[in-house]
Amino acid sequence: MWYGVFLWALVSSLFFHIPAGLLALFTLRRHRYGKFMSVSILLMGVVGPMAAGILTSAAIAGVYRAAGKEMIPFVALTFGVGQTFCVVVISFMRVLATL
């Protein structure tokens, strides 16, 4: 159950981070150190869901299992994309910088 949510979170995260990384690579290709920023953007697209995505997906699956409910694939899609959407919104709002 958690694996489906995790995979959707990973795929949707890569859906946002790959274009951002390619855009950074294209715009900073002549900069001495800036071209390496695209690598960090791509790494965050993979490392973020691997670290936090596994934990939150397991928590969501644990609640579903404790409730005795069956998770259909569309619900896994919704939770996985929802996790990525929350990360993108928080990243753009810069809420973490105020904490």
Rank of each mutant, 00 (worst) to 15 (best):
E70I: 02
G53F: 03
L55I: 13
S57P: 07
A67N: 08
M37S: 15
A66G: 12
I41T: 09
L22R: 00
A76R: 02
A59D: 03
F79N: 00
L43N: 06
A66S: 13
I60A: 13
S12K: 02
F74Y: 09
L42N: 04
R29M: 09
G34S: 11
L43W: 05
F74N: 12
L55N: 10
M37H: 11
L23A: 13
L77R: 11
G45I: 11
G62K: 03
F36E: 12
M50R: 02
S57E: 11
A20V: 12
T78I: 03
I18E: 12
M71A: 09
R30I: 01
P49T: 07
I54W: 02
S38Q: 05
K69D: 04
A24V: 07
M44N: 08
A76K: 00
P73N: 01
R32F: 08
S57Y: 07
L43P: 01
V47W: 03
R29W: 06
G45E: 04
F36P: 13
L14H: 08
T78K: 15
L43A: 14
L55A: 14
R30Y: 01
H17Y: 10
L77Q: 09
G48N: 01
S38T: 12
L43M: 10
A76Q: 02
F16L: 07
A20T: 13
G62L: 13
A67F: 09
Y33V: 15
K69T: 14
G62T: 04
Y64R: 09
A76F: 01
L22A: 04
T27W: 06
V39M: 06
M37V: 10
M44A: 10
I18A: 14
G53M: 06
T27I: 07
